[in-house]
């Protein structure tokens, strides 16, 4: 396999607090290939946003990357100085957040913000940058872009603002776009539009996407591969179809069964007992063990590392440890 565009190895993110250090991300590893859409799912607090923030160097102090490496085309970016990071952010990695207003400055017109972003990263004249900005707005589906570009963010509806943010994220032709819950704040009918735009325009420009969401449906329709996070750890990662139709990790299986669908009308949904532990109460061994229907002795003592399951799939669960399987005589 070619060198990955982004490679995250054994990432650890910690937040020191008065009552001890919280480990929000605990040895998470994954790759994103060029042009690939990697979905990142998990329940609230699983560590999705923190993973994204770590990649773009936006962990809020005193939080810090306490271990591991992040490489962009082989080059380490987790230990860069703030100013070098700023050059990567926007230029090589674009960002789209849940609330469009966090990415847009209310005091400047959309034109001013787009042109500034383009000219910071690409050597263009004001006029060239403006033409490019208009083309971009047009591409993300802003009607009458040449006129609307001089409006302020609050003149746009929620969906239109998120289109502007996508235009902004792509303005400098980044190689990777990190989109954190880009549609969660939008209405159902608008969510589909935004996901479509994001997906198409990234594909067109060959940008890879890390799509963070708690919505499995969005992942199913958009991502090539999916990573499932649980309590700051990677539970399972693999091609979307495999993970959705044949989940291997007991947590992923429970998660998939617990989602109501438009076609199924089973009487009861699959139910995982309890809820995800807080960071200060992660159990010893496998973090999922108190809720796991298949838990056995080892799970309560030793933490499982991701185990290779072929076709770029990994599952962090002792059930798939060959040594154990052999022991049980069912290889």
């Amino acid at each position: 396999m070619a060198q990955p565009l982004l490679s995250v190895r054994d990432l650890v993110v910690e937040f020191p607090t008065r009552r001890g250090t919280l480990r929000a991300i605990d040895k998470v590893s994954f790759d994103i290939q060029e042009g690939e859409v990697l979905g990142m799912v998990g329940e609230s607090g699983a560590g999705k946003s923190i993973t994204g923030a770590a990649i773009i160097g936006l962990i809020e102090p005193p939080g810090r990357i306490a271990g591991g490496e992040i490489r962009l085309r082989g080059e380490r970016i987790d230990n860069l100085r703030p100013e070098a990071l700023r050059r990567i952010r926007g230029r090589r990695i674009g960002m789209v957040f849940q609330d469009p207003l966090t990415s847009l400055n209310p005091l400047y017109t959309v034109a001013q913000q787009l042109i500034e972003t383009i000219r910071t990263h690409i050597d263009l004249s004001e006029r060239e940058a403006r033409a490019r900005a208009v083309a971009l707005l047009d591409r993300v589906g802003i009607p009458a872009a040449a006129r609307r570009i001089d409006d302020y963010p609050h003149h746009f509806s929620g969906g239109m603002r998120q289109r502007v943010v996508i235009a902004l994220a792509l303005a400098a032709e980044p190689e990777l776009v990190i989109a954190d819950e880009p549609t969660t704040a939008l209405d159902v009918s608008v969510q589909a539009q935004i996901i479509d735009v994001l997906k198409e325009i990234c594909a067109e420009r060959g940008a890879a996407v890390m799509l963070i969401t708690h919505d499995m449906g969005v992942i199913a329709e958009t991502a090539d591969r999916v990573a499932v996070l649980y309590a700051g750890r990677l539970a399972e990662i693999g091609p979307v179809r495999d993970v959705i139709t044949a989940a291997e990790h007991p947590y992923t299986r429970g998660l998939m069964g617990s989602i109501p669908t438009l076609t199924q009308t089973a009487d009861r949904l699959v139910q995982i007992p309890g809820s995800m532990p807080r960071l200060n109460a992660i159990p010893q061994g496998c973090a999922f063990n108190p809720r796991c229907p298949e838990v056995f002795g080892r799970c309560r003592v030793e933490r499982p590392d991701p185990i290779d399951r072929g076709s770029r799939r990994q599952v962090a669960c002792w059930l798939y440890d060959t040594a154990k399987a052999e022991e049980a005589g069912n290889v």
């Binding site: 929620g158 009918s189 179809r241 959705i244 076609t263």
Partner: peptide
């Protein structure tokens, strides 16, 4: 119809969604 088309399909049926237009 539009609302139903807008729901992402978890079953990977490859159902072709119609593009939903406009906002409320």
């Amino acid at each position: 119809r539009m609302l139903l088309d807008a729901v992402p399909d978890l079953t990977l049926s490859g159902r072709r969604r119609r593009q939903v237009e406009g906002e409320i």
